[in-house]
């Protein structure tokens, strides 16, 4: 434990990251540049999220890490271990018990509270990036609130697919001011961005931090005649029977067999513990 400073980063770096976080909280949705550090993991594995988590973490915190809703996949396991080793903090898989939750591409189903911080890993923080490649120009567009182009993208979606086909990283407008990329969460999760908890977004490679303070107004962009629709697969969860959680489609054999299960593993498990069951539970072949 003595080999590392608490939570890996040195104190000056944490100070620098915290300043960026505070600025981000003061100007919701604004991308604050920060001097992102090399982390002992590759870019794209959550270096931005890890730096933000490390900077807000205290020894009393309970940490949970989510990767696409799951607690037990590579990314989640390795980052959880990283904080166990470098910060010696308690970890959990239960959303309700955690105080700092780092997530990749999902918002937990369970509603978060004022005592919690949700940290997102962000690959590309700039919502206008694929429409306007020049950083100088996108910054100017944010500064001058020129967001017509964002709607051009949604227009193209409807023209091509008959509906707004953007299903993840669905752009939102924060407090009627900044257009923000909520990281690649499914658009199903967009309504949950208006939350009681603090939400922090860290992009390591792109060196940006942005934030949503509690109770911030977050509106998903749409057209009057094509309103925003936070859709999901039209099935109940095969394991817990939940009808209003976000589902993953799992291919189970080579004959087109498939099942839909909650993407939030902790949520699904806790429901099953409370006695809820879906049509395929217990799984065939598994000892009942």
């Amino acid at each position: 434990m003595d080999d590392y400073n608490f939570a890996y980063l040195d104190e000056q770096t944490k100070r620098m990251v915290r300043r960026a976080i505070l600025k981000g909280l003061a100007v919701p949705g604004y991308q604050v540049p920060f001097a992102s550090r090399e982390m002992p993991m590759p870019y794209g594995w959550g270096t931005g999220g890890v730096q933000v988590s490390a900077s807000v973490m205290t020894p009393d915190d309970v940490v949970k890490v989510i990767d696409q809703g799951a607690d037990d996949t590579t990314n989640a396991v390795s980052i959880r271990k990283f904080f166990q080793k470098t910060a010696d903090v308690a970890v959990t898989e239960h959303t309700g018990e955690a105080t700092v939750i780092q997530t990749r591409h999902r918002v937990p189903e369970e509603l978060l509270t004022e005592n919690q911080i949700l940290v997102y890993q962000v690959p590309i923080p700039e919502p206008l990036r694929f429409l306007e490649p020049r950083e100088t120009e996108t910054r100017k567009m944010h500064a001058l609130e020129e967001y017509g182009l964002m709607h051009v993208k949604l227009y193209e979606d409807i023209a091509k697919h008959g509906a707004i086909a953007t299903a993840y990283a669905y752009p939102v407008k924060v407090e009627d001011r900044y257009v923000m990329d909520p990281s690649p969460i499914p658009k199903f999760d967009n309504p949950k961005l208006e939350s009681e908890c603090i939400q922090l977004f860290g992009a390591g490679r792109e060196q940006r931090i942005y934030a949503l303070p509690p109770y911030t107004k977050v509106v998903s962009l749409d057209f009057e005649d094509y309103p925003f629709d936070p859709s999901k697969a039209d099935h109940p969860c095969a394991l817990c029977g939940c009808t209003n959680s976000y589902l993953d489609e799992v291919i189970v054999d080579d004959d087109g067999g498939r099942m839909f299960v909650c993407s939030d593993t902790d949520y699904c498990e806790s429901r099953r513990k409370r006695g809820f069951t879906g049509p395929q539970f217990p799984l065939s072949g598994e000892a009942a």
Binding site: E146, G148, L149, H151, V152, Y155, E156, I158, A159, K160, F223, E224, D225, Y226
Partner: peptide, 26 residues
Amino acid sequence: RMRISAGGNVGERLMAVGARHYGTIR
């Protein structure tokens, strides 16, 4: 904008000044 359809190109200015109705823009 070469990567955007003709309709999107023409509609961009309208959307830039606040048009939010797909049918009218089209």
